[in-house]
């Protein structure tokens, strides 16, 4: 039997947690309620569902070539994620599995580069892309993001837990190094891949500054840029912006819920 004091403590805990839950859920609720209201109602502070949802959706779809915009966003985020995972997991595997005199120095150099803010790289990168003559292309958006240092670091850390016995056994069975990577490493590390997918996809999907600078035309714009454009203007339509915000949030939410279990495993360490 718990003492009254413990009960009180528990009540306090729940109160605090409810408060925290409210603080984190309310913006979502506001977004969803806002999508169903007119701009004027939102400005008045109306937080209850309204009837303007369909109007807002129609306006949102008509504001840009949405099929193209969604295609751009999914292509860039999807392809970017796949390429980043391939490059980063290969690099993480390499850094951990192969010894070399320069290994730690190179890796330290990489980590050091993490501290350079993107703002400092932006203009040189733009000049580079202009010299390659690939401004306003998908390549220009993808190339600088593929070799993500953070994800390489993440894979190297996860690879430390990869049992060497598995690699040895595979060698004895006659597998080549690329086969070990493909048939042994990748399946064993699937939780790490899942967690990295969430992180990279979210980053790519939400990516704003670099696409903004390197993409020039409306046909190339991504959803993030379009939603930002909706907020421009002297009289923004907040209902439409909320619909845009929902569209921009949903894919990352879905990916997260689909990969949630693996994500937690991946964060705790992939190999049991």
């Amino acid at each position: 039997m718990s003492s009254p004091l413990a009960l009180l403590g528990r009540a306090g805990t729940y109160l605090l947690l409810s408060l925290a839950a409210f603080v984190s859920i309310f913006p979502f609720f506001w977004m969803v309620a806002g999508a169903t209201n007119t701009s004027a109602d939102i400005i008045r502070g109306k937080g209850t569902p309204g009837t303007a949802l369909w109007d807002n959706i129609v306006k949102f779809i008509n504001s840009f070539d949405m099929v193209r915009v969604l295609f751009n966003s999914f292509l860039l985020a999807g392809l970017g994620t796949v390429l980043t995972l391939i490059v980063a997991s290969l690099a993480g595997y390499g850094f951990e599995m192969f010894r070399s005199r320069f290994r730690e120095k190179i890796f330290g150099g990489l980590l050091l580069m993490l501290s350079i803010p993107f703002a400092a790289l932006m203009i040189p990168l733009f000049v580079l892309m202009a010299n390659f003559k690939i401004i306003n292309t998908y390549q220009a958006v993808l190339l600088p993001t593929i070799a993500s240092i953070f994800i390489i670091f993440y894979f190297r850390q996860a690879t430390k837990a990869f049992p060497n016995e598995l690699r040895d056994a595979a060698r004895i069975d006659g597998l080549k190094e690329w086969q070990i990577f493909l048939y042994v490493y990748m399946p064993v590390m699937r939780s790490t891949y899942a967690a990295a997918t969430i992180i990279v996809f979210m980053n790519n999907w939400n990516s704003y500054l670099w696409p903004l600078i390197v993409l020039q035309t409306n046909e190339m714009k991504t959803l993030t840029l379009v939603v930002a454009t909706l907020t421009s203007g002297y009289t923004p339509d907040f209902g439409v912006i909320m619909v845009g915000a929902i569209c921009a949030t949903l894919p990352t939410l879905i990916i997260f819920f689909v990969l949630q279990r693996r994500f937690v495993e991946g964060m705790l360490g992939a190999v049991k």
């Binding site: 903004l212 600078i213 020039q216 930002a228 454009t229 421009s232």
Partner: peptide, 11 residues
Amino acid sequence: EIFDKAAMEQK
């Protein structure tokens, strides 16, 4: 080409 104002300036 329509941009958000701050974004256009940055670009």
